[in-house]
Amino acid sequence: MSSPTCRIRVFFLQGITRDSTLIADAAVHCAPDLPIRIFDMCRAASRYLRFLPTAFVLAFAPLSAVAHPSADPAVPTVELSAEASRPAPNDMAIASAYFEASGTDPAKLSEHVNGAVASALERIRSYRDVKVQTAGTSTYPVYGKDGRRIESWRMRSELQLESRNLPALAELLGKLQANLALSGLQMQPAPETRKNVADQVATDALRAFQVRAKTIADTLGRAYRIRHLSVGYGDGQPIRPMKAMAMRAEAAPMPIEAGETEIVVTVHGTVELTD
């Protein structure tokens, strides 16, 4: 195996013995992994060095082992963040309505519940701006006081309605409550609305980050450049579903107040302060 690239480092040792052992030991200490013939060369060289007034110690060291200071000093960095928000109109509503009944005969109970849901679906389909899907159906036994004997069965079927036409949905919910119970209503921005507002808020947050970074750099008398950025999206105010309502025999449109949702964008980043 070939020896690593070496270079000779010369040390001036004042008042040190000129013994050849010192030179050999220095070579071993500096480069123990080199071939033994290099050590022999050191011993041979010591014969000439002993006649000089000052001893020269020759040490062989791999270039890779020589530490060189970094050409560029560490660049100072600053961690900072900025936040922006804007309100987005709640232009979409999601409602949950269900039909629930009990009976001792599971087959008749299922026929009764399915009939009520089918009738509700027929009415919902007459509203073109309202989307509907089955949210789930469940049947479970009702036990007696002893907790062992099944006395009856309870069945529940739920529908989920979605619409951006709030007046039409309010009218439909008013009619459905003649047979169905309303378990929840959520108001939120439609996906397109949320995206458009979020893009605007992201621009505001990035500009705020840039202004903050420049302020810090100017205060310290430095220039700056961005090393890393992360952008997070969220809602400042969580959407809360309304409590379950079972107002039956109500044909009047259901009152709906859409309101707004705060869209929040947070920017985290690292900037380097340069000269």
Rank of each mutant, 00 (worst) to 15 (best):
G147D: 09
R164G: 12
G184Y: 08
D204Q: 14
I216V: 14
A168H: 03
S138F: 00
A170S: 15
A202D: 01
N179M: 12
G147F: 08
G144E: 13
S183M: 07
K131E: 11
S163L: 04
A190K: 09
D218F: 06
P191I: 05
L182V: 05
R156V: 08
D146N: 15
A213W: 00
N196T: 15
S157C: 09
A202W: 00
F209Q: 01
M187Q: 12
Y143F: 15
L121C: 15
V197K: 03
A168I: 15
Q200W: 06
R156T: 07
W153I: 06
L185A: 03
Q177C: 07
L185H: 01
T215Y: 10
L121F: 02
I216Q: 02
D218N: 12
S163D: 11
E171Q: 11
E162V: 14
L173F: 07
A213I: 00
P141M: 13
A118L: 04
T137A: 13
P141K: 05
S152V: 05
E192V: 12
R149M: 02
V142R: 14
A120R: 12
A135W: 05
S119F: 07
A120Y: 13
A198V: 04
R212H: 07
L169Q: 09
T139R: 15
N196G: 05
V130E: 09
Y127G: 10
N165W: 03
A208K: 08
Q200I: 02
Y140A: 14
A202Q: 15
P189C: 08
S152F: 04
I216E: 06
A190P: 04
G147K: 09
I124D: 00
R123V: 09
E122M: 10
T134A: 12
R149A: 11
V211Y: 11
W153G: 02
T203H: 09
L206T: 00
S152M: 09
L159M: 10
L180S: 03
T137K: 11
